[in-house]
Amino acid sequence: MPRAQKKQEVHVEETQEELAPVVNIGKEYDEDDVTKAEEEIFPGGPTHNELEKWKSMYNGEVYLTEFDEENVFIWRPIKRKEYKDIAKIPNADQFYKEERICDKSLLFPANYGAMNMSVGKAGIPTLLSELILEKSGFVAKTGAMRLS
């Protein structure tokens, strides 16, 4: 009996022109193909099992942003309560808030924290936080439309 054919689904969503592309990853595979579930979705990345776990935890809203071979991030949108807590931080500048947004939302790499952000490429936390906010509802799909 032939095995069910594997399906791969990747959605690329356009963002504002100055932002990097965001990829919403979806992967389906045979239920009996257990080894596939333990394979990494990209070299050095999380496994298909981890991705499926995140997708179930965050209503399927898991995104990938790749800056270069060394800087690939998987993240989720930020929740309102998390955003409000960050916004309330006294005496915090915009850069600090961007880094906290990344801290809350990044799923991979797990060890990408404040130290990595401070010594890494300057634009990554800024761009990632913009993408996270966009997918968290801070950018409307359409502009305001007057109804008559």
Rank of each mutant, 00 (worst) to 15 (best):
Y112H: 05
E40N: 06
Y96K: 10
G60L: 10
L131R: 08
K88A: 13
V34E: 12
M1P: 04
A140E: 11
M57P: 00
T126H: 09
P46I: 15
V139D: 02
F108I: 01
T47E: 08
P43Y: 02
T15H: 06
K84G: 04
H48E: 13
G26A: 13
K53H: 09
E18C: 07
K97T: 11
A37F: 11
L147M: 04
G113N: 14
L133S: 07
A122F: 07
E70M: 03
E40S: 10
G26F: 07
P125K: 06
E98M: 13
V139N: 03
G123K: 11
G137A: 11
L133K: 14
D85V: 05
C102P: 06
E50N: 09
K55Q: 14
R76Y: 00
I86Q: 08
E39A: 10
G113L: 02
E98G: 03
K135M: 10
Y63A: 03
D85Y: 00
Y112P: 00
N24G: 06
F108M: 03
A122Q: 09
T65W: 05
A20P: 07
E9W: 03
W54S: 05
M57D: 12
S56D: 14
M117G: 01
E52L: 09
S118W: 07
L106C: 03
S148K: 11
A140I: 00
D68R: 02
N91Q: 10
M115F: 05
T126W: 01
D32P: 00
I132K: 08
G120V: 03
I25Y: 01
F138M: 11
E99Q: 11
K7G: 02
M115T: 14
S118M: 08
E38G: 00
G143E: 14
E31P: 01
L131H: 12
R76G: 01
G143I: 06
I124H: 02
K27I: 15
K97E: 15
V72D: 05
I86D: 13
E17F: 01
I89M: 12
I89F: 08
K104N: 08
F95D: 10
W54A: 04
C102Q: 05
E9P: 00
E31M: 06
D85T: 09
I101W: 00
P125V: 08
F108H: 15
E130C: 08
K104W: 00
E40V: 01
T126A: 13
V22A: 07
K104T: 03
E69K: 12
R146D: 05
W54K: 07
E70Q: 12
S56Y: 05
D103C: 08
C102S: 08
H11Q: 14
K79F: 14
A122L: 07
H11S: 11
D32T: 08
M1A: 11
A140Y: 05
E39L: 13
E17M: 01
E18K: 05
E38H: 05
R3P: 00
S148M: 03
E134T: 08
I86K: 06
G143R: 08
Q16E: 11
W54T: 09
E66A: 14
N116D: 15
F73A: 02
Q8R: 04
K27R: 10
K27N: 11
A92I: 02
K141W: 04
Y83Q: 10
K27M: 13
K135Q: 15
V62S: 14
E70I: 00
I89E: 15
K88L: 10
V139T: 10
S136A: 13
K53M: 12
Y96H: 09
Y58C: 12
G137Y: 07
